[in-house]
Design a protein around this nucleic acid. Structure first.
Length: 212
DNA sequence: ATCCCGAGGG
DNA sequence: CCCTCTGGAT
């Protein structure tokens, strides 16, 4: 089966498994989702969700975070890893939102990716989940792995993987296919021990039993 | 290609 | 011990 034939089958079966997809990162608005997504780099969402209530309690929005010190933000986000970079980027992003975007997050890929620490993956998450704008498909560690195993791409480069995925799914599915691949990746097809015998995509998966 | 970096699982 | 977790900048 070709990738373009497989894609709708995958979407349909995952849609049956996940009738409604809710973002795993707790947030109340676009700014909080952006911050949570930045913190989610190489970190589990469960840990991010432990940190963000503290973070947003102390600095509710970009106006407050822009005035925070590097050290106090580092302390709060420390357990998410990469804490120096994340603290620096979040404060700098807050400053830029206040000074350059009038205190409101912009709604385009081009503008969002001018924020330090924000590239296509984070921007795609914010655009599709907070603004309902589908400029692309968010490609993270799970999407990378699932796209490869399902034969949607031969690349390990997130930018090329996104280009490979986009023509396989109609635009209105771009936000959902990300959620589906992330959840399915966690529950059935994790990096280490994929549960191929229990997988409802097993009959159509090019890499069934390979686990790579 | 390399660095940033904590925490949990196996 | 090694691998992995909704990455991004140099």
């Amino acid at each position: 089966m070709t990738a373009s034939e497989l894609a709708p089958v995958v979407f349909e079966r995952l849609r049956a498994r996940y009738p409604v997809t809710v973002p795993a990162l707790d947030h109340r608005d676009a700014w909080e989702l952006l911050v949570a997504t930045v913190l989610a780099a190489q970190c589990t969402d469960a840990r991010v969700n432990q940190v963000t209530p503290v973070l947003f309690g102390r600095w509710p929005g970009p106006a407050q975070l822009a005035r925070a010190t590097q050290e106090e933000v580092e302390e709060v986000v420390r357990s998410t890893g990469f804490f120096r970079n994340k603290a620096k980027n979040l404060i700098a992003s807050a400053v830029r939102v206040m000074e350059h975007f009038g205190g409101e997050l912009p709604r385009t890929m081009a503008e969002l990716t001018t924020l330090p620490g924000v590239a296509r993956k984070t921007a795609n998450i914010v655009l599709s989940n907070a603004f309902g704008v589908h400029e692309g498909i968010a490609v993270d560690t799970h999407v990378t792995r699932l796209a490869y195993r399902l034969g949607f791409t031969n690349s390990d480069d997130p930018v090329k993987i996104e280009r490979d995925l986009m023509p396989l799914f109609p635009r209105e599915q771009w936000g959902e296919i990300n959620h589906m691949l992330v959840y399915f990746g966690r529950e059935v097809c994790p990096a280490r021990k994929p549960r191929c015998p229990a997988c409802e995509l097993g009959d159509v998966c090019p890499k069934r039993g390979v686990g790579k």
